[in-house]
Design a binder for these strands. Structure first.
Length: 402
DNA sequence: CCACATGATTGGGA
DNA sequence: TCCCAATCATGTGG
């Protein structure tokens, strides 16, 4: 493609002697001038004897540039050879100084002002989450276990769910392993690529000015690129963990009925405070402790209970009677009831409790509802929506609204 | 498998 | 923030 009329395989001595930095003042890196301005005939070095004017000089440089530009089109061997030839070319120092000049003029040196990259908040979030889940960070095994135990304790699950735990843990460690191998791969690729680029730059620094700062900057750019890939890995790992979590730990999906004692305790409270079945914070806490469930579960339970009781009082008559009897028995047998006072401000729980229940529980059979729960429930908490009596065909609590 | 029970979630209101 | 009401999703008994 290019036909150099002159041997580009200039020998070392001729190169250093020819266009040596000290020969052509215009080419001195410390005092660079534009390449096209170097046409002084008296500056012609020994290597260019035979060429009389600057016109040929320009041709010379043009040739070199062309060779450089086309070097990528050639095969590796070819390019390698050409590279070597160019490196030894007598005009190389001149080119170098010109490049220095261009670089200085275009201010490339200065462009590294912004190098403090702010930490990506998204990445930080992912890192934190992976750390919290026990995927990232040191192998402590505490992450998964802690998460599981937290979920269990809050769910009030029975120990039989430990089966799910081991499954969860093994799946999590699987994710963890994949994550770490991938991460390692990325890191290795990153460092390989970095060293490669650094070597390249170092080599290029022979022909063009490359400051260490530039190398640093390039390394930083490479790291940024790789870290964006890494953040994708982290993102997908997070997603996998979330899916795993939701599958194994989502309380809703893994709903467990409360234990019999827990339900009993809750029902006891409910029916003994039927007039105002809204446990205070302290009462909820107490119930939660007593039933080994969380406070929000207590709240949920009471919310569900109230609405379902209200919706179909007839259906709950029997249950109400049962608990009324229970509390009544407890109250009569021991004046001091074992559980804590309610905090509804209604004074002594035992009294109010039994009162609540007794008021509306005359007979023992819940079949006929001759008594009206609504009557004794002075609280208006259930008076509003009795209209849809369709749900309770058997119960005649239609008049409980008064 | 079906119907019902039940704990949890959600959206709106006060 | 609590509660209600509706709804979801699972548990359970027949």
């Amino acid at each position: 493609m290019l036909q150099p009329q002159q041997p580009i395989t200039g020998n070392g001595p001729s190169a250093s002697r020819g266009l040596g930095l000290n020969v052509h003042p215009g080419m001195h890196p410390l005092n660079p001038v534009h390449p096209h301005s170097q046409h002084r005939p008296d500056g012609i070095p020994a290597g260019l004897e035979g060429i009389e004017n600057g016109h040929d000089n320009r041709r010379d440089i043009k040739d070199i540039l062309q060779q450089i530009m086309t070097i990528t089109d050639q095969s590796l061997d070819e390019a390698q050879a050409k590279k070597h030839a160019l490196n030894c070319h007598r005009m190389k120092p001149a080119l170098f100084s010109v490049l220095c000049e261009i670089k200085e003029k275009t201010g490339l040196y200065m462009r590294n002002a912004q190098e403090e990259e702010p930490p990506d908040p998204q990445l930080v979030r992912l890192d934190n989450m992976l750390l919290a889940e026990g995927v990232a960070g040191p192998e402590k095994g505490g992450g998964a276990a802690a998460a599981v135990s937290a979920a269990t304790s809050s769910g009030g699950m029975s120990p039989d769910s430990s089966l799910g735990h081991s499954d969860y843990k093994s799946k999590l460690s699987q994710i963890r392993n994949i994550y770490h191998t991938e991460l390692e791969k990325y890191e290795q690729a990153c460092s390989e690529f970095t060293t490669h680029v650094m070597n390249l730059l170092r080599e290029q620094s022979r022909t063009r000015p490359v400051s260490p700062r530039e190398i640093e900057r390039m390394v930083a750019i490479i790291h940024r690129k790789f870290s964006s890939i890494q953040s994708q890995l982290k993102q997908s790992t997070c997603e996998a963990v979330m899916i795993l979590r939701s599958r194994f730990l989502d309380a809703r999906r893994k709903r467990r009925n409360f234990s019999k004692q827990a339900t009993e305790g809750l029902n006891e409270y409910f029916y003994s405070h039927l007039s105002n079945p809204y446990p205070s914070e302290e009462a909820k806490e107490e119930l939660a402790k007593q039933c080994s469930i969380t406070m929000s579960q207590v709240s949920n339970w009471f919310g569900n209970k109230r609405i379902r009781y209200k919706r179909n009082i007839g259906k709950f008559q029997e249950e109400a009677n049962l608990y009324a009897m229970k509390t009544a028995l407890g109250a009569t047998q021991s004046e001091e009831s074992p559980h804590t006072p309610n905090s509804t401000g209604s004074g002594s729980f035992s009294l109010s409790g039994s009162a609540d229940c007794f008021l509306g529980v005359p007979p023992m059979n819940g079949e006929q509802p001759p008594y009206h729960m609504g009557a004794q429930t002075n609280g208006n908490w259930q008076e509003q929506n009795t209209p849809p009596s369709a749900t309770s065909p058997g119960s005649d609590h239609s008049d409980n609204s008064d």
